[in-house]
């Protein structure tokens, strides 16, 4: 009798445990592993020479005081943008950087970083621009890895020189002002997504509090829809499920039938949305990295300013 009771109790407990674990399982299961990897996935492959982990954090000293073992440090301010002119890293500089990180043509590149993976997503965009297909993000970024008390190292990795070769820049995933202007004027087909906060989108503020790169005008690019980047992630910073993401963007008319243009303030947050739309949902997406700090300063381009904060009004 007692044994049967015990077995029943065990069964009930096991069922509850499975039930509790299931939702997170299901949410994760449909994210394509070719784009997003879990902390478990990565933890099991730290010694795999085919997998190269790269940290792109922007708070100084974060990488140095402890990174995922074997991870290489890419510095957004000097490695992933041109250090002099406003542009992305040149193909020569990026090829040198990637080779010194030991990246080969067939390497699986996994990026992660602080600040919700924004700058890591920028890194993924640069890898894609220069033709490296197998580039993925660590779901939940640095914060999740730390939260799970996974190991960190202060040891600087040294990897044998790789053979990565930068291909000619893929123009179709990067948009310039003229490309976006053509969409606004109806000369080209496309849908524009502004991923900033509603306050920035409406022109109530020029930039998030504490940020200094400003524009002369506040507001957004005409016809752009507003989907703040953060709506693509769960509370713990992990990506929502494919179905949730598809519905989120479909609700504002972004369903992959037309080319998508994403922008933010300088292109760091919109890299995140670029990653969601292109690498997770598979849509045709270009990032406009000039973003609001170019558009809001450009002479003669139309803007929308629903908040009515244009100069001289207040």
């Amino acid at each position: 009798m007692n044994i049967r009771r015990l077995v029943t109790l065990f069964a009930v407990v096991a069922l509850i445990a499975v039930g509790l674990a299931l939702p997170s399982f299901r949410a994760r299961a449909d994210l394509p592993e070719s784009a997003v990897v879990s902390t478990e996935w990565l933890a099991a492959r730290l010694d795999d020479p085919k997998v190269r982990v790269i940290e792109v954090s922007v708070i100084p000293g974060v990488y140095e005081r402890g990174h995922i073992p074997g991870a290489v440090n890419f510095v957004w301010h000097t490695d992933l943008v041109d250090p002099v002119i406003r542009d992305i890293a040149s193909p020569e500089a990026f090829q040198k950087l990637a080779r010194s990180a030991g990246i080969n043509a067939d390497t699986t590149v996994v990026l992660y970083g602080d600040n919700n993976n924004w700058f890591a997503a920028w890194g993924a965009w640069i890898f894609s621009i220069y033709g490296h297909e197998d580039v993925r993000l660590l779901d939940g970024g640095r914060a999740k890895w730390e939260r799970e008390n996974r190991p960190l190292s202060i040891q600087q990795p040294s990897h044998p020189e790789g053979n990565f070769t930068a291909k000619p820049a893929r123009r179709e995933i990067r948009a310039f002002l003229a490309d976006v202007l053509a969409v606004v004027k109806g000369e080209a087909e496309g849908v524009i997504v502004d991923i900033r906060s509603p306050a920035e989108y409406e022109g109530r503020i020029f930039a998030p509090e504490g940020f200094q790169e400003l524009a002369i005008r506040a507001g957004h690019i005409p016809t752009a829809v507003n989907v703040p980047w953060g709506r693509a992630v769960n509370e713990d910073g992990t990506f929502k499920s494919v179905e949730e993401l598809r519905q989120l963007y479909a609700s504002v008319g972004v369903d992959g039938s037309k080319k998508v243009y994403v922008y933010c303030r300088i292109g760091e947050r919109s890299s995140h949305t670029w990653f969601v739309l292109s690498k997770i949902l598979g849509y045709d997406v270009a990032q406009y990295d000039g973003s609001w700090t170019e558009w809001g300063n450009a002479v003669g381009v139309p803007i929308e300013n629903p908040a009515g904060t244009v100069w001289g009004r207040q």
Binding site: G61, E64, V75, T78, I154, Q156, S158
Partner: peptide, 10 residues
């Protein structure tokens, strides 16, 4: 440990 090559950038 933080910066193995001091003669580089930064």
């Amino acid at each position: 440990a933080f910066m193995p090559n001091p003669s580089g950038r930064g």
